[in-house]
Design a protein around this nucleic acid. Structure first.
Lengths: 207, 207, 207, 207
DNA sequence: AATGAATGAGCTTTCATTCAT
DNA sequence: TATGAATGAAAGCTCATTCAT
């Protein structure tokens, strides 16, 4: 029973729970559902998670970590416009993966759950604060470089970017067959328009 | 007991339910909570709504109607750029009203509920389809007039607009003290950038 | 509002209740069902019957009265065999009437209800005691006249007769299409066999 | 937890339920009553029966099985008259047992419940059809052997026999102190009268 | 006298959690 | 350590009855 064994049990439970939550929602998923999905016993699950809510929190937290990782990658880009474009393509593009559908459904639930669950709220907030900071820095850098209009509030801009991501997650959860590419293309046009220098220029051949 | 009396009872119950749902979420709100909040009896509530879920659906539906009304107003604007700006100011600006906070919290819950409740899903979808159509038309009109870049997919653009609204609702639900004005200003800059004619722009003195 | 008016309201309510009880049973019939069936208001019904249980009791009592009336008619017959045969034909034959189906279904319910409701039990018992007494007298008379075997216990015989009636009501309630004539014919053969005098004789051309 | 353990829990619940149902009737018995009678918890009962109605159905079904078993034993008798007499003594004689009183009260309830509950109706019907078939066969055999009058409809006769049983159950439920022996003796006289050969009868020294 | 909206105790059922084995 | 039967508080909902109008 070394640590990796414990960890793999946690994984097993979390995976089963994600499947259940995506299928039925947090509140309609019973511990028995998770028990059935894992193939473990009720007692076993309580050995790894002290309460149902802890499974929710663990999943929310994991989602946050993954998002942060995606962001961190894009952060480094030297050119602000290029960095934004890469962010768009990586963050939004990931949503084209049909395997992520379960994830999207759970994410939307987490967003609602945050309003009633302080632990989840904290996770959701810190999962948003970090990207906002990164994006705001990017905007500020862009403004220093004269690429981004100075009249934009950096944090406001960052929040709009986050919204563009969040809204896509929502809409995709509701319409799994949504045309993500058309969405991404539009966002790229916006980025171009926003980051173009003083002179009129032709859109770069994005994507 | 005339009809307006019955209608006012429905209102009373829905208002109480909104308060409860905003406070505790759909699933953690018990019928007893709503009973206590209304001051009516359990039986009285069931005279107006056959089940708890019907209260949820009624509220979701009402939210949808309000949104649609806001959209319909802005729709008529002669100039595409002006229409978009008005839409932004009316739709987003409304969220500055602190009284709407309860509403925002419930909306986020409705979004999650849609994934598990077909009736709510239908309401949410039709509440999104209509704005998307209106916005896509606006984009198409803008493209004909040469104001909006032809390379944008009209529906994709519409969905980005919706996302900008949805994301703000989410973020405001999580951060009630969020600076909505900074957000709106950024969006207006985006609109300007997007809808400016071929010649060098001067930002309109909006807001 | 003279007495006949009050009486006709009671009738109306009882008829509606019988319809409901036959359809759904006592316990699954709500006062609202009866309200809907009568077309009266809830308050109006409570003006005529102080409680739901009183409607049940009134119906049970009425059934009892009708049975007693049937019995009383047959009672007078001069010849014991003829009297028994007439009883069989009148009591059982009545059950061929399809209009009585509602009645049969309610009767079976009353029988069960008696076990839990002292008032109904009293009604059921007195509704059985009277026929038993009449039949037992008939048997005793038959025994004195040498027509009925002396070895038969008069009350026991009376109870068997009652059972033959009760069983038919039950079976008809379960199988509305039951062949009552075949049943009645068999009972008539039994009566013949039981009441035939010392010498062997041919069955009378009954029915 | 082996199977016999689970089975004994089911028994325990059914026994408690029979006690409650005999005491208060199906509809007036609450799950809490059964909980109290078993000494188990509410949850435990729902592990063995998915709903209250399933307990009713299980009990009805068990009653049916017991009846069928009694019938099956008597079926084989070589001599038709003897078979009928044995049936009478076994089926009716069993009702002398005071321990069966609970059972009788529940049976009467099941009879009423059948009218409103399809599952129970099916159980009741199949519990009657089988005995009817067996008895009708017996009558037919008796007719071939010249012992039973040919003018009797076999199924009609069978139904009268069933009625004689059902009526006794009813009457005993209403009058626990009923003289069953007098009843049985009368039925035996009837059987004798019905099955006697062409020649003058002498009552057999039954019982 | 009649109405029907309101009452609220009480129903069946669920399910997160525990703990004897 | 693992099991899964048992727990029991609490949920959503019903319905006989009342009473202000």
């Amino acid at each position: 029973m070394d640590e990796s064994y414990l960890e793999s049990r946690r994984r097993q439970i979390m995976d089963a729970a994600i499947t259940c939550f995506a299928r039925e929602g947090f509140h309609r998923t019973t511990m028995q559902d998770i028990v059935a999905e894992t193939g473990l016993s009720a007692g076993a699950i309580y050995r790894y998670f002290p309460a149902k809510e802890d499974i929710v929190a663990a999943i929310a937290s994991e989602h946050h970590s993954r998002e942060a990782a995606v962001l961190a990658e894009a952060k480094a880009g030297a050119d602000v416009g290029a960095a934004l474009r890469e962010l768009v393509q990586v963050s939004l593009g990931r949503l084209t993966d049909p395997d992520e559908q379960r994830w999207r459904r759970v994410t939307v639930q987490v967003w609602g759950e945050a309003l009633r669950n302080d632990r989840v709220m904290e996770i959701v907030r810190s999962g948003l604060d970090e990207p906002i900071d990164i994006l705001a820095d990017l905007f500020r850098r862009g403004q220093l470089e004269g690429i981004v209009p100075g009249e934009i509030d950096a944090e406001g801009g960052a929040r709009v970017c986050a919204a563009i991501f969040q809204g896509l997650v929502l809409q995709q959860a509701w319409y799994p067959e949504l045309d993500v590419d058309a969405y991404v293309d539009t966002v790229l046009v916006l980025v171009d328009r926003l980051t173009e220098p003083t002179k009129r220029r032709r859109r770069s051949p994005a994507r």
